[in-house]
Design a protein around this nucleic acid. Structure first.
Length: 262
DNA sequence: ATGGTCGCGTAGCGA
């Protein structure tokens, strides 16, 4: 039996419970990495999600950011925050070790900074955050074990991953410096699950609420699974749950799911 | 002709 690992930016867990519970019941992922909870532990609906069979750990923040890990198997260890800057108090990163069917593997839930407007402190923070992520991943790679860095990267990897590349030139999600930082992340020998599974262009994971982006399919592919070599070897399926964007009061992002022999 | 995004939290910011 393979393991499924999902990532989903829910854009407020409290506002999205109807969609989240429905999707978890229907799809039963072994692990779900959630982003943009927009709440602290106090407001997080632990009971309702635990009743669906999940162990839950969150790294919360009031009003903004916030990430969670949900797992059917128990957590072996959990760490909160991305190393490399003690003054960074934004809740955008957590990771855990989880038992697979055969061996343990590591999973991170990532909410990479948006970075707009450019130039400015927010863009500087984004690029610095990406460098910190690279440094941290380099350390994880030394173990030569399977791991999955799943989340909203706020990076459009290529022109085929955006409806209108011209319109996004200069945006923090699509700038050359952003591409360079993302390429550097892949350069240390991480693999995008989308690439490993021969994903086609024009498959999006986000459609803005504004301007009728969804009905016109003006989307972006910004939610990604980055895999260590040992995880890339074991991926068997990669799916973007596009239909979820059609639901009642949807998130602007949809779930992305990888299936692994782990 | 008008208004045409959502969530948090109750103004205006962040995305």
């Amino acid at each position: 039996m393979p393991i499924t690992v999902a990532t989903w930016n829910v854009n407020s867990i409290k506002a999205r419970m109807h969609a989240v519970t429905g999707w978890l019941k229907d799809n039963q992922p072994d692990v779900a990495c959630l982003q943009e909870l927009k709440t602290t532990e106090d407001g997080f609906p632990f009971m309702e999600l635990e009743s669906l069979g999940y162990n839950i750990r969150i790294h919360g923040q009031k009003s903004y950011n916030g990430v969670a890990l949900l797992s059917k198997q128990p957590f072996e260890s959990v760490t909160r925050g991305l190393p490399g800057d003690d003054k960074d108090d934004q809740a955008r990163y957590m990771e855990a070790i989880i038992m697979g069917r055969n061996s343990p593997f590591r999973v991170a839930s990532i909410y990479l900074p948006n970075g707009n407007p450019v130039p400015g402190p927010k863009y500087d923070y984004k690029l610095a955050w990406m460098t910190r992520l690279k440094t941290h991943a380099e350390n994880l790679l030394k173990d030569e074990e399977p791991f999955i860095l799943a989340g909203d990267y706020n990076v459009i990897p290529r022109s085929g991953d955006v409806h209108d590349p011209k319109a996004w030139e200069g945006d923090a999600l699509y700038r050359p410096e952003t591409h360079a930082a993302f390429r550097a992340l892949l350069g240390i020998s991480l693999t995008e699950a989308f690439d490993q599974m021969d994903g086609r262009f024009g498959q999006y994971t986000f459609w803005d609420y504004k301007g009728g982006a969804w009905p016109q399919n003006r989307g972006l592919r910004i939610d990604h699974l980055l895999l260590s070599p040992q995880a890339a070897d074991r991926i068997r399926r990669f799916t973007i749950h596009r239909d979820v964007r059609e639901g009642v009061r949807p998130s602007d992002h949809v779930p992305v799911v990888g299936k692994f022999d782990l």
